[in-house]
Computed example of a mutant assay.
Amino acid sequence: MATRYDIAHGLSALALAALFPAMAMLSSPTAAAGRLPRIGFIAFEPGGCGNPAFHRGLRELGYVDGENMVFECRHAEGKFEGLDAAVAELVRAKPDVIVAFGHAPTRAVQRATKDIPIVMIASGEPVELGFAQSLARPGGNMTGVSYYNTELNIKRLELLKTVVPNFKRLAVLVHAGVPEDLASAYIRDAEAAAGALRFDAKVVKFKTLEDLDRAFEEMGRFKADGVYVAPMREVAAETRRLVELSKRHHLPVVHFRKPFPKAGGLMSYGVDYATLYHRTAMYVDRILKGANPAELPIEQPATLEFVINLRAADELGLTIPQGLLLRADELIQ
Rank of each mutant, 00 (worst) to 15 (best):
I121G: 00
I116W: 06
E151Q: 13
P126C: 02
A112T: 08
D115H: 14
F101D: 14
G130P: 03
F71N: 12
Q133S: 14
R74W: 05
P95E: 08
A86W: 00
E125V: 01
A85L: 06
A112I: 06
V127S: 03
G130W: 06
I154R: 13
S134D: 11
P117A: 03
V87G: 09
G82P: 11
G82W: 02
L129S: 11
T150I: 14
N141A: 03
V109G: 10
A76S: 15
G82D: 06
Y148V: 10
A136C: 01
M120E: 04
A112K: 01
T106E: 02
D115S: 15
L135P: 09
A112M: 09
P138V: 08
D96K: 10
I116F: 05
M142F: 04
A88E: 14
L83G: 09
A136I: 01
M69Q: 13
S123I: 06
L90G: 04
K155G: 06
N68K: 09
E128P: 03
G124A: 10
G130E: 02
E81C: 03
V119D: 01
V109H: 07
I121E: 03
A100Q: 07
F131H: 08
E125Q: 13
A136P: 04
K94D: 14
F101T: 15
A85K: 05
